[in-house]
Design a protein around this nucleic acid. Sequence first.
DNA 1: TATTTGTGCAACCAAAAAGTTGCATTATAT
DNA 2: ATATAATGCAACTTTTTGGTTGCACAAATA
Lengths: 104, 104
Amino acid sequence: MRRDVFQAIADPTRREIIGMVAHQSLNINSVTEKFDVSRMAIYKHIKILTECGLLTIKQQGRERYCEVKMERLAEVSGWVEECRKIWDNRLDNLDNYLNKLQNK
Amino acid sequence: MRRDVFQAIADPTRREIIGMVAHQSLNINSVTEKFDVSRMAIYKHIKILTECGLLTIKQQGRERYCEVKMERLAEVSGWVEECRKIWDNRLDNLDNYLNKLQNK
DNA sequence: TATTTGTGCAACCAAAAAGTTGCATTATAT
DNA sequence: ATATAATGCAACTTTTTGGTTGCACAAATA
């Protein structure tokens, strides 16, 4: 399924999972232990995160380790950066206009 | 209502609204014109965006102009940055370890 | 003054999201 | 060989989300 990174990080539990796995690769049960929802709830969060490429899974025997893929987060900071650029370039931004004038 | 910036930018329509308003302040009807959903649908999106501080409204006669508040987007890029830091500092990141070794 | 324009509110609806429980499957450990 | 541990799948429920329509109301305009 095509998933959206923005939608994936909208959920606080999923953001927490990303933080945990960024720190250290963890298998699904280990991730589950840190939360007080069911294993399946976490499993589904992880599924969403893998479907949008924020996590990858490495099978190791019967365990599946989650690894974070930082590259995909670039889409997020990229969008923020894009907004900032638009904002900086707007003509009717008075402060900005005065600043530019002052720098000349 | 307490709103979450991450949840607010999860919706593509809302991200588009932010982009539009970053470029130029617009009243609600002007925003609506760019989309093919009802005025109320857009009104609700704008409500969510104001509730989490990404937009502010300036009343001008009977019109209400939306202005973007870039500061609030810092929470997003800040979180991404935080994740990146955690990732960079992890001890079991082999590539990272080798790079550090090489730089010494 | 009458009409149009820009907006807000309430009630409602359908689809998606987030969660649960129970059962099945496979690898490891006893 | 059996028990246990780690996971996947399916069915189901509840809540949230994104959308609609109809009505109301104040400001601007003809």
